[in-house]
Design a protein around this nucleic acid. Structure first.
Length: 120
DNA sequence: ACAATGACATAAG
DNA sequence: GCTTATGCCATTG
């Protein structure tokens, strides 16, 4: 299935701490494909429902939930984030300055990934 | 190999 | 601020 790219995306998303968010472009940059933000979105869209990937912590560069797909519910994402303590303003946006995850260089992601795997 | 498809990003009006 | 247009790129048919 050649899902190497997707797997890397999933690993990174799993590293986003609870209560913080990252943007699609940010994830793409970490996997060394700065222009592949759309593909990152596609990767999350393709996630199975029972996945352990905190997909709700990935939003667009404007701090808004960006689900246009009819099969998925944007409300769900918002509720999941609010459950983690993230506050939405009246326009349905989050304060990226405040909740944004700084991100990590890819090599470090790999290290954390191995630790995560051992604990599981 | 080619064209279409997105849970995007950015620039321009 | 909001709406369009354009660039992007892995995946799929």
């Amino acid at each position: 299935m050649a899902v190497g790219f997707f797997e890397r995306v999933y690993q990174i998303v799993r590293m986003i701490p609870r209560g913080q968010v990252a943007t699609y472009g940010q994830i793409a940059a970490i996997v060394s494909h700065p222009r592949a933000a759309r593909t990152v979105g596609w990767a999350l869209h393709a996630l199975p429902e029972g996945s352990d990937v905190p997909w709700q912590r990935v939003i667009n560069a404007q701090g808004m939930v960006s689900i246009t797909c009819e099969l998925h519910d944007p409300i769900l994402q918002r509720e999941l984030l609010e459950e983690e303590g993230i506050v939405f303003d009246e326009e349905g946006r989050v304060d990226l300055e405040r909740y944004r995850w700084e991100g990590l260089p890819w090599p470090q992601i790999e290290v954390l990934w191995h630790e995560w795997e051992e604990k599981s």
